[in-house]
Design a protein around this nucleic acid. Structure first.
Lengths: 258, 258
DNA sequence: CGCGGAATTGAAAATACTCAAAATTAGTGG
DNA sequence: CCACTAATTTTGAGTATTTTCAATTCCGCG
């Protein structure tokens, strides 16, 4: 099963390389989701000047690591990442899965060190954004600052929603929320909302959702049996998005108890 | 059991009213934790001019509510708040307990509406900070901007730590983390790290930690029996902070299985 | 073809939940 | 200040969702 190739398959380089003239933000397909959102041409150019090199990160490679000094934020041009904390006891907790147009490293601003690891789930490309240079630009480009605040605020909101998920949902609802969320994000990027590839292992999903890999496996089996979706390896097709959304909202259930 | 009255009992008005001359940030005991941290006198005065009225919020009163248009951030002068989301199904999830020097409302920046409810656990006083005015000040006071980013980043980090807690800790460890965290925050404010009042109900604690009220009750009983702490109503005295920290770190355990 | 990692499936165990009742505490008004 | 009621908390017993442990299957890849 492949992703519906709406503009192009996710995890594939967007069709930017064609017109190599517009190399900066102006030519990036993630413009409307990323940091430069809403900037006029002039401001976008100023942002371009601040942005460092683009960096390719191969699958399973680490973009940054806990404890490293913080210098850059990273905007994902294409590909997928996971970020995770490692606690004193050595076990991991995945704090998020990020995709094109999203910003990495915001947790590091306060302590001037990265507080988690970011690892590529795909072959990725990111824009390196030196934070001190960005700060310098804020005074000149108020729209950029405003949008940056929105992005940070959004991240706070996202995490609060995960707290909600982990704090008072059962396994089934957690997984439904996870799928619906992925669908929405792919949709916002112009890809199919009903057909996509999971970029992360079952183990990663379980870790993120506070469940075991076995539970994820069983949930997939259950959802499949109920006709909510079809699975083939990491390929997902949502067959009943309405019902799935209802489950995510807590309106419906399909658990053994019902 | 009362709080050790280090400077004064927490939840009590700090000794600011005495010298009414310094009414603004300069005279506030939370200066070193709050928004004006690190500002020189001039900048602090500029911040003062932007800050709106102080507002008293009685116990159980609502500071703001989900859906209301976002205009202000709020800095807590004294007292305690809880913030919680209410989902479609109507159940609450507490996303945090905030105390003096902490900032409320950051989740609302992106959507221009508050996304959770903030309710006073105490009689509180807050500084109303009109966000658009604050934004105006950022261009003139770069240190303020820098610190604001640190605060938002810190909030992101805090929430990631809660994800860690909810995602892969057992009840006992969650509760230990909760207590150790409270202790550290009181300590940072000049209060005793071993003796304090819980400002929230058992139910609120349970909700926050993803556990039931009964579990909290049993955990308290177990910790008490093991000599880790003593409880009297909402008064807590930590008798073995070292062991408690070890439990929070996951190094030790006291669960039935051990 | 066979090795190894990832995923699935089954059965048993356990942590935390639910339900219920008792006990304690807080709030209110006489 | 005391009594009464309501709310919160504690405790107990039984239950259930999810985990753990184990074995098996699937699949990519050398």
């Amino acid at each position: 099963m492949q992703n519906a190739p709406a503009p192009s398959s996710p995890g594939t380089h967007p069709a930017v390389t064609i017109h190599a003239i517009k190399a900066g933000c102006a030519g990036c397909s993630m413009q409307q989701l990323c940091l430069p959102m809403g900037l006029d041409e002039d401001d976008m150019l100023r942002l371009d000047k601040v942005i460092g090199r683009r960096r390719r990160v191969a699958r399973d490679e680490r973009l940054y690591q806990m404890g490293q000094p913080f210098r850059n934020l990273y905007a994902i041009r294409f590909g997928h990442f996971k970020t995770f904390h490692v606690n004193a006891a050595g076990d991991e907790q995945i704090t998020g899965f990020q995709m094109a147009g999203e910003l990495l490293g915001m947790e590091a601003i306060s302590g001037e060190r990265y507080l988690c690891d970011a690892v590529a789930l795909d072959d990725c490309e990111v824009c390196e954004i030196p934070f001190s240079a960005l700060e310098g630009l804020f005074a000149q480009v108020p729209n950029l600052l405003r949008h940056f605040h929105r992005i940070m605020s959004q991240e706070i909101t996202r995490e609060q929603n995960v707290m909600l998920l982990l704090g008072n949902m059962r396994a089934e609802q957690r997984f439904a929320v996870f799928l619906v969320n992925l669908a929405a994000r792919y949709s916002a990027r112009g890809y199919s909302a009903t057909q996509f590839q999971l970029r992360m292992s079952r183990e990663d999903i379980g870790n993120y959702l506070g469940l075991t890999i076995e539970s994820i496996s069983r949930l997939l089996a259950r959802f499949k049996k109920l006709g909510l979706l079809s699975v083939e390896k990491r390929g997902i097709m949502l067959l009943d998005p309405v019902r799935l959304k209802a489950m995510a909202a807590g309106t419906t259930t399909c658990s053994p108890l019902s």
